[in-house]
Amino acid sequence: MTGKPETNGNAIEIRDLRVDYGDFVAVNDLSLTVPYGEVYGLVGPNGAGKTSTFRVLATLMEPTYGEVSLAGIDALEDKESARRIMGYMPDLAPVPSDLKVREFLDFYTHTYALGTRNECRSRAEECLEIVSLTDQRNSWCRELSRGQTQRLVLAKTLLPSPKVMILDEPASGLDPLSRRELRLSLQAIAHEGATVFVSSHILSELAEMCSSLCVMNQGQILASGTATEVRNQLGRAERQIAVTVLGPRDNIASWLASQHGVLEVTKSEQHDQRVILRFTGGDHEQAALLSGILEQGVAVKSFEEKSSSFEDILVKIAEDNRRQEGSPDEN
């Protein structure tokens, strides 16, 4: 690994990374690679080790051991070079209370030595435009809403045009509109050639945004690849489907219970014409199931996927963790 950034190979390479806090192992021999130009997602429940991994990547923390390379630069040995090509946005990104928006950005354009005063200003304006904050340039940082603050910090992160962006839960605390704007901003940035490594505990959101992702739990990677690959690797591609029919539901409920991929059928207590099934089949199987119901001569009022399988995966992982923590064997 050299001090000059590479442009072929992988943007991020992590090998045997371990982070300990006393006896607690936050990241346990983690290895992963992220190719150039990808929006790569890291998902996991609280305490999975996402933030520790990101802080090591961002050169803010020394790991117990391991190797981290950003665009070919050894991030643990040559921190200053790594910092030149990397942008980091922390979880619940803070801003200084005593500066205005443009002063905040001006400051960082100077710390990155982005050129003359005019060049610095125009770069700050460009970044404000990308995150749609141009109108707020004279506002105090402390007066911005949560979403605006997140976008301002994203603008700050964009200032030096980083080759690798590390964003820890950038969407946390944002309303749906701000979340959508952020997602669009990140996709635009990736289109320009930057590699974006982003974490979230909202799996479905990352699935929409990322070209690849990995699921992390208790410091280790459970699965990685595209969204479908992750779903298959975890073997828990289970979703809830609510079927509302016109007329009695008993017949169709018993027919559904005998179908391949259906784990369980329950009758809704709130709605006397609705049945809810836990289904593990793929998209084609789901379409075939709907056709089968219609072939049974049942009038279907609605056929609705109630929650994404990704959320279930994460919920199950978190539940398993809690069960393990509560287990007397562990104590």
């Binding site: 050169t59 803010l60 910092r83 619940l92 801003v95 200084p96 209370s97 960082y108 990155y112």
Partner: peptide, 17 residues
Amino acid sequence: AEADEGVIDYQRLTPMT
């Protein structure tokens, strides 16, 4: 205050010596 507000991390990351 810089550490308390959390902005010190940004400062750590700037490529200043």
